[in-house]
Nucleic acid binder design. Sequence first.
RNA 1: GCGGAAGUGGCGUAAUUGGUAGCCGCACCAGACUUAGGAUCUGGCGCCGCAAGGCGUGGGGGUUCGAGUCCCUUCUUCCGCACCA
Length: 812
Amino acid sequence: MDYNHRSIEQKWQQFWADHQTFKTSESTEKPKYYVLDMFPYPSGAGLHVGHPLGYIASDIFSRYKRLKGFNVLHPMGYDSFGLPAEQYAIQTGQHPAITTETNINRYREQLDNIGFSYDWSREVRTSDPGYYKWTQWIFMRLFEAWYNKETDQAESVNTLIYKFENNGSTGVFAVSDDDVNVFTAEEWKAYSEEEQQHELLKYRLAYLRESTVNWCAALGTVLANDEVINGVSERGGYPVEQKKMMQWSMRITAYADRLLKGLDTVDWPEPLVEMQRNWIGKSVGASVKFPVPQLDTVIEVFTTRVDTIFGVSFIVLAPEHELVADLTTDEQRAEVESYIDKTSKKSELDRMADTKTVSGAFTGSYAKHPLTGEDVQIWIADYVLAGYGTGAVMAVPSGDQRDYLFAKNFGLPVIPISDSQNIEEAADPNKDGRYINSDFINGMTYAEAVPALVERLENLGLGKAKVNFRMRDAIFGRQRYWGEPVPVYFKDGLPYLIKEEELPLLLPEVDKYLPTESGEPPLGRAEGWKYQDEYEYELSTMPGWAGSSWYWLRYMDPQNDTAFASREAVDYWKAVDLYIGGSEHATGHLLYSRFWNKFLKDLGYHNEEEPFKKLINQGMIQGRSNFVYRILDEEGKGTNKFVSLGLKDQYNTIPLHVDVNIVHHDVLNLDGFRKFRPDFSDAEFILENGKYICGAEVEKMSKSKFNVVNPDDIIRQFGADTLRLYEMFLGPLEQSKPWNTNGIEGVYKFLRKIWRLFHDAEGNFVVSDEEPTKAEYKALHKIIKKVEEDIERFSFNTSVSAFMICVNELTD
RNA sequence: GCGGAAGUGGCGUAAUUGGUAGCCGCACCAGACUUAGGAUCUGGCGCCGCAAGGCGUGGGGGUUCGAGUCCCUUCUUCCGCACCA
């Protein structure tokens, strides 16, 4: 008898299931602790050995916290709406719900094998109507809310309507579209229902507006910016074009400041915090208007250096700027159009590679400098981005290097504006000196000049202090089937919410999962799907991140049918104490979740400003591919011979991926190879030292590279405890590293050694009642201290090593 | 270009506070046992050198009694952002 991982693990997993060992309740005197994993999308490929890395760490921590006397909430669920299931449905006609169910069952089986201590009675699935009822409910709250800047929080639109009815639009400080109307209370009351609703839409946190979207014709859907990579869709790599469309959006920009401030209060990895800061991209400056008399309009620019305004020698617009066509004079038209044409053909990659080339075109028109009244040339250039700020900049060649190069290249004036500037060779952006050539700010310092200028501009009505954010509102609609229906119908072209008691608005059946012939989303195919048999429902569905933006709250009270979670549950569990997941969600899920969390707090549904107190990014586990080297003949054709790694340079060879599961310590199992590739069943091998040595390379873990290692296989051979221990032993949790099954024996041997410490030769459990020796006590307490310290600082790898040393000492 | 992380034996790594660099594991080498095995146990294992000894944490410089750790500089790799006005 020896260490039998199979019977041990089966026994205890059964015991946990029978006794509901990990079921959690709120009725306890113990302090609470909430440990959360980022729930997976149940893909058809199942789990590979990289997926559970973070789950193992969080499971260890959960068990540790329970032993420390905490009431630990440690749940798991599935982010089960998503494109792959829909793609599969399009290809096979299989309903995505069925595929999803199958995949979830497979995931569950694999997760169970690993022996996690989840409270499965709290499982959630975002595609479950009982769950998405509340996703829709939150959407309704967002639709019915506006952001009041005075109170710095979201409020019901009723408070806004009240203001409109009593004082009109004066005194309303809201985060909203810039083109809101100005009206009195009387005017408001005189508005038609349609006009009122139209105006309110400009304030709602979930709102409809025409936006330029990333339209992917091949997928028949709109993609978020973060789902488009180098001009093609992240999934599938299909081309993506810019298209104007009525779209649901989320006014996340209302929360920009609070999202930024909150980052100082959370215990998150610094790189992640930095990424969110960059994404939000706050810059403090001023907006300045340059009048264009001949068009009776103004060009608005945003600048962080309003102090340099007297150094402005020209204005640059993005080629896509809406005024470009009107500004272009007939003489310049050909040049401008050809430049726009050239820009639009440039791929993002080209623009990246081309940061040094200066290019642009003069529109032929002039704007008036707001303070000097002088004429300023208006140019277009692709270094100005349509999507940032106003899509226009005031160019100050003496203070900005890109403007400097542009001016030198096109022979435009460079005006020094400070007595401390050196602009012989390059622009000098320093703020240290005193201003020159700058009218009424001459002689002032930077600190004196900025308020003086802002005041002057405000008095002229040509500028104001402004904070600009890089972050834009999030587009919320998707032209897809497999997502939450938006609980909205249309009457006279305006959106209205369905009644709360009509939730959930169930996803209707359709004959096909493709867009309709007229280009409507798949929901347009649902027969007789009309609100009160009369009004069109919204046909787009919610994006993937909708369901995942509040799921940690649902775990607190997952079966509740009258609220997303009961007040008691929410007040008890509060926020997630430890959240473990990948850093790829830095600017998606983690930002949207913080947004929804703050919103629900504003409406008084809970008291937590931040949802995730502490966060850890586990590293990604890459694959380690193995290669065999096929010898080529003189014509470069593959032969039937394969040469071992060390001898391959003597031949002309081509590397072929070989299944890592038939390679052991880089030595190829020849019989295994013949079975793996029956087409090479009569292959010949040139060996070194009697072995065929494979080459190895680190790549993404994927089926096509034959480097996928399935946890089930490892567990069958070595057991879940070995797998868990080995994943932790592999290196620091946060670090990315390739999976390499070589070395797992060391961990397995260690577990066997422990087992043998407490079992006799027949396999009977034997412990003695003898008083332990001093040395034994010392080893015991040393390891208790060490393991505790290591777990507290998430240094699991050193913890495993320490345990091995301890056991070595005891067996010596 | 900007921001971040990281470079330590053949490999994964350790060194928690500036204090014996390389713990633990893999691989490898030698030995024991032997029903010859991809089992188990014992010992060795940074590099050069027979040794004494010397060198050694990407390179160069510095602070310090003392540097893998701190500072400057430089190179490389990975991640994030993309001309941010």
